[in-house]
């Protein structure tokens, strides 16, 4: 099955080392415009490292990252946000001593289009109504689920063309996980392109069009979600990593 939309992000043979640790040993993946792609795998497989490197927080040792036709490997994180990639990081990483409103404001710090920013915050409040009630509250005082919604909203305030999500269900109560994933489904309907890292495979494959399974810094398996969902090999890829 060929995907008609153009490739938005292309990662080719990406290698990242931390000292002697080879975190990524040559990963290749594509994300097409309008697509949701899941990146799954066991602990330490290199999922977060992949996202952090795309965002410019880690320097690639080798390989290419091409966004919208331009190589972006190794350029400054703020430039990458300006080009259109925003990330909601693992563990949320909110500015806990700042208010919800100020966290959202900083999410839009690379933008200058005031009216569009106001419009986008209205959209955030439609997607995550609880945030509107919490605007003046310090982000650190929110519940886990509320914080995750704020982390998503903060990333979306950058008006990204590609949204990187690192474990949006982590530390979130089950009921709110459902809420968050229905918000992500809504975003998908609106055409947002996403690269989603998620421990909960069922949730990830339900949302995503395609998925890559990482194992110890390499792509062990990839394919369409529907195919992978029933595949024994996904479980095997996980087990392989655990041993």
């Amino acid at each position: 099955m060929a995907t008609p939309s153009p490739v938005l992000l292309s990662v080719e043979n990406l290698e990242v080392n931390f000292g002697a640790v080879r975190a990524l040993k040559g990963i290749s993946l594509d994300v097409h415009a309008g697509e949701v792609v899941a990146l799954v795998g066991a602990n330490g497989a290199g999922k977060s490292t992949t996202l952090r490197t795309i965002s410019g927080l880690s320097r690639p040792r080798g390989g290419k990252i091409i966004f919208d036709g331009k190589p972006i490997g190794g350029i400054a994180p703020s430039r990458i946000v300006t080009l259109g990639i925003a990330q909601s990081p693992e563990g949320r990483r909110l500015f806990g001593g700042l208010t919800v409103a100020d966290n959202l404001r900083l999410g839009a710090c690379t933008r200058t289009d005031k009216e569009a920013i106001v419009r986008d915050s209205e959209r955030m409040f439609m997607l995550f109504p609880i945030l509107k009630q919490r605007l003046k509250q310090l982000a650190g005082t929110l519940s886990g689920g509320e914080q995750q919604q704020l982390a998503l909203a903060r990333a979306l305030m950058a008006a990204p063309r590609l949204l990187l999500l690192d474990e949006p269900s982590l530390g979130v109560a089950p009921l709110l996980v459902r809420h968050i994933f229905s918000a992500l489904a809504e975003l998908k309907r609106q055409g947002m392109t996403m690269l989603l890292v998620e421990q909960n495979i069922t949730l990830a494959l339900d949302l995503a069009d395609r998925a890559y399974v990482l194992r110890t810094g390499q792509v062990a398996l990839s394919g369409r979600s529907a195919e992978l969902r029933d595949s024994e090999r996904v479980a095997q890829a996980y087990l392989g990593a655990a041993t």
Partner: peptide
Amino acid sequence: LGMRAAAEDMSAAHLVGLNV
């Protein structure tokens, strides 16, 4: 605000696109 944000969490400051 960015200065306070960077003081709290430098990599999150990078991620929202602040010019640190």
